[in-house]
């Protein structure tokens, strides 16, 4: 993307709610907030997956931990986001520290599988927490409150909160990617052995990277729970980890905007199929709208097979051509 593009996108995002007509506002604001939250989650995964080359198949564990910790605090009467969200971030970081410390000792397929296994562990643990809804999940009476005269209960205010979190996450990733640490992480992705051989503490760097991503994932989880006022163990299911990976790859792994583009494309595509009837398609295939994931799966398969650089990669290539 060019230098101006991020600012244009930001300006559009900032003015979007004002341009909405009242009748559609609730639906689209809520949908856009969901995209922002998933974009943040996917961006956090992009840090380890795209920049660090660590194929973690368990990122939902950190998003889910954040979602559950903030929800449990809310249900116990701790309403302030200033307590609930940092707590979610802290818990997810801790989970990432423990899971990363063990997982990062393995390589390749074993790493993929052990991260998956850890995420399953968290999934089943949460499933058996009967006090907090077990497999039925936990409904929240209200969203976390931000104070300062802002009512996050309104979709309007929540939209800006989610946008702010995503913007902060993206800016953080941008800074990190060009910092000393970011370059080490990318060097490790290119050639782990050599990175160690020129003097970088590879294991420690990967672990720190893993924890940062876990923390950001935890924040996304806390936002997600507040957004829907509901959380259930499915946020931790392994298919959620797969969905996040899917967003990163669709958007462009190792590219700043990859997570955002991927989240927008995937959720947009789902919404497009499910909520916007195309008559000629419905004439051929009457119930197609109930089978959105057939379309999503096909698009993902096509991207993996034919455009492994993702959408951001294709945009970048076009510009160079």
């Amino acid at each position: 993307m060019g230098r101006a593009a991020p600012w244009i996108v930001l300006a559009l995002a900032l003015t979007f709610p004002l341009a909405m007509q009242a009748e559609h506002q609730t639906y689209y604001l809520s949908f856009a907030s969901r995209i922002f939250i998933y974009a943040l989650a996917a961006t956090s995964l992009n840090l380890i997956l795209g920049y660090g080359g660590m194929i973690s198949f368990g990122h939902a564990a950190f998003v889910g931990t954040g979602a559950y910790v903030s929800s449990i605090l809310l249900s116990e009467g701790v309403a302030s986001a200033w307590i609930g969200w940092p707590a979610a971030v802290a818990a997810s970081s801790l989970a990432a520290l423990v899971i990363g410390a063990v997982s990062l000792r393995t390589r390749g397929v074993y790493f993929i599988m052990i991260t998956l296994a850890f995420a399953q562990m968290v999934f089943f643990l949460v499933n058996s927490m009967k006090a907090y809804g077990g497999d039925e999940g936990l409904s929240l009476r209200e969203r976390a409150s931000l104070g300062l005269g802002v009512d996050l209960g309104s979709d309007f205010a929540f939209y800006y909160a989610a946008l702010a979190a995503l913007a902060a996450g993206l800016y953080g990733l941008h800074r990190l990617a060009h910092s000393r640490f970011g370059r080490v992480i990318q060097a490790i992705r290119e050639n782990e052995e050599r990175a160690e051989a020129i003097g970088f503490p590879v294991y420690r760097c990967k672990l720190v990277c893993f924890v940062i991503a876990g923390a950001a994932g935890g924040l996304a989880g806390a936002l997600l729970a507040s957004h829907g006022k509901y959380v259930n163990p499915n946020v931790l299911h392994w298919t959620q980890s797969g969905t996040l990976m899917m967003m990163v790859i669709m958007g462009g792994a190792g590219r700043l905007w990859g997570g955002v583009i991927g989240a927008a494309a995937l959720l947009g595509l789902e919404d497009l199929i499910a909520n916007h009837r195309v008559d000629w398609l419905a004439a051929i295939f009457p119930n197609y709208q109930q089978h959105a994931s057939l379309g999503v799966g096909t698009v993902l398969l096509a991207i993996v097979l034919f455009a492994p650089q993702g959408i951001a990669g294709m945009l970048a290539r076009k510009k160079h051509a």
Binding site: V109, M246, I249, S293, G297
Partner: peptide, 24 residues
């Protein structure tokens, strides 16, 4: 011939497709 990541994602896509196909 592809890397593990591509394999994971492509076969994950197949899960989505086959689940829906069975549902249909």
């Amino acid at each position: 011939a592809r890397d593990h990541l591509s394999q994971v994602l492509a076969t994950f896509a197949l899960i989505l497709i086959l689940n829906e196909a069975v549902r249909i």
